[in-house]
């Protein structure tokens, strides 16, 4: 086909993305620099107040809390997910696709439903309490639902399949002879893992961590449902600015911070990937 045809094929979709993604995102960027009107709404004058407000001690606490929960969730998800991916990659080749499919399947079912499943398990009349009573545990059960732990479990549960996928990709591409070469050269199984396999699969780990972190810190559904509004994540704060507090410019500034964190981490992740793959390839 001639060189100009791709343009016509791409134009409708790129046009759509421009109107309904690029322009709205630029709008948010602009919004962050406008003043909030007295009765909500937007006053079109330039200000840096919104960005300054983000660093106000009042919100710094929320930021730290969000980052702590997102970081904890991401770390747990990466450890569990990497182990699972490793086990899948070590399974017989013909079983791997099926194992992977079932590991990922929950990821594509409804997020709310998956979160709700944990409400069913954790609530005061829920299954876990019921089982504990059945086993003769009579003392007062600690509150399971509406706690920090519940939120972390919910986030790990929801994003684990993604981490498994991300870690499986580099593990499955590993040439088994590389591990064998390491053993042949005298390294133990653990040393082989730590010195050879782990460094070569860092990109998958980095991808998994970044995505769980970013998706968690911007989440407002899980804290609302499993945290019961006990504490706020950045996502909840953004939600509130737009739907209850009616301070859109501040909400826009907050979401810019979200994007900033994501881009920063993605850059780090790209860096990690490039280091791991060395000078092997220039372009994917």
């Amino acid at each position: 086909m001639q060189d100009r045809k791709p343009v016509y094929l791409m134009a409708p979709a790129l046009g759509w993305l421009t109107v309904f993604m690029v322009i709205p995102c630029l709008l948010i960027l602009a919004l962050a620099f406008f003043r909030r009107g007295i009765y909500g709404g937007i006053e079109y004058s330039f200000t840096l107040e919104n960005l300054a407000l983000v660093f106000d001690p009042l919100y710094a606490g929320i930021f730290l809390k969000s980052a702590w929960i997102a970081g904890l969730s991401a770390a747990i998800a990466v450890i569990v997910g990497y182990a699972a991916a490793y086990a899948i990659a070590a399974a017989p080749a013909r079983r791997q696709p099926m194992l992977l499919f079932f590991a990922v399947l929950p990821f594509w079912s409804n997020y709310l439903v998956r979160t709700y499943a944990w409400i069913v398990l954790l609530n005061r009349e829920g299954l876990i309490t019921g089982v504990a009573r059945l086993l003769g545990y009579d003392a007062e059960m600690p509150r399971l639902l509406y706690s920090e732990g519940a939120v972390v479990i919910g986030l790990v549960y929801n994003y684990l399949p993604f981490v498994i996928l991300a870690c499986y990709a580099p593990l499955s591409r590993l040439n088994p002879e590389i591990a064998e070469a390491s053993r042949d050269l005298g390294a133990s199984g653990w040393k082989t893992f730590r010195r050879v396999i782990l460094p070569m699969t860092v990109p998958g780990i980095a991808t998994g961590f970044v995505f769980v972190f970013v998706l968690s810190i911007g989440n407002f559904v899980t804290p609302a449902l499993l945290g019961g509004g006990q504490f706020q994540m950045i996502g909840n704060l953004v939600y509130a600015q737009f739907l209850t507090a009616n301070d859109w410019p501040f909400g826009a500034a907050l979401s810019m911070i979200l994007i900033g964190i994501m881009m920063g981490l993605l850059t780090l992740q790209t860096f990690a990937t490039e280091r791991a793959s060395g000078a092997r390839r220039e372009e994917s």
Binding site: F20, M21, I23, P24, C25, L27, I28, L31, V214, L215, G218, N219, F220, G235, V238, Y239, F242, W248, G251, A252, S255, L258, I259, M262
Partner: peptide, 12 residues
């Protein structure tokens, strides 16, 4: 993140 696209579209 969904929330960013969501508020961007809402504003738009």
């Amino acid at each position: 993140p969904d929330i960013v696209l969501a508020i961007a579209l809402l504003s738009f």
